[in-house]
Amino acid sequence: MLARRVLQFLIVFASGLIFLMILKYSLTLSDYVIPSPLDIWHTGKDILTVYFFDTLNTLSVAIIGQIISVFLAFSVGIGARKSTFAGSFIKAAAYNIQAYPIVAVAPIIFILLGDGFITRLIIAAMICYFPLLLSIIGIMSEPVTDIEHFYNVTSRMRWQLEVKIRAFENMHKLITVISGSTTLAMAGTIVAEFIAADRGIGHSIRIALYQSDLSRILTALFLIGIFISVYQGMLEWAGERIGNRWHVSN
């Protein structure tokens, strides 16, 4: 699964590069607009180590942000799964906050909290949290009638049991949602670094952008893609194992 994800990413990235090269050579564009393969290779070789650790730094913040988001989303999602006022209120609030562009909100966070680790974490969690919350509310508020009916008519239904049934029956969906939120957490961290932080791959991309250096940007994108693929692959693998174990124990 892991190897397949990485391979898929490599195919997508290579296709993108080939498209750029077709564009470059068919329109006879200079290395300033689209760098040559040799230039990309040399730049990549020179900065690979630095960018590797930058991406690792970004990923570590993204993972923490994602864990926080998942916990928060589950807590709120479980609380809001009933069609009560609280549930619809949380949904409406999540939709509204999700609509705010983070670049507009980010400066307020920077003024309040500075531009360190916490700010990056909050922005990553913010970008990741709301879509996750809406998906989890959606999944957890959908009754599994066949099973729940039995417990309801025998008056043995408790909220813990209800959550368990719904989580178990929708395990595949939940794993997909959590795994998908990796990209959001990573994107959130990169946005935060791009706007304010002085470390991480987002910060490096910002510098490369100021220097009009597409080779560096492509190297950064390559590493981000590889890291996300590996992390997502690992999440899916872990999710599958948990699902199988749960299935066996039940």
Binding site: S30, D31, Y32, V33, P35, D39, Q211, S212
Partner: peptide, 12 residues
């Protein structure tokens, strides 16, 4: 600096 950099990368 943009102009010089672009020229160093062959931009006309």
């Amino acid at each position: 600096d943009q102009v010089i950099l672009a020229r160093s990368k062959g931009s006309p």
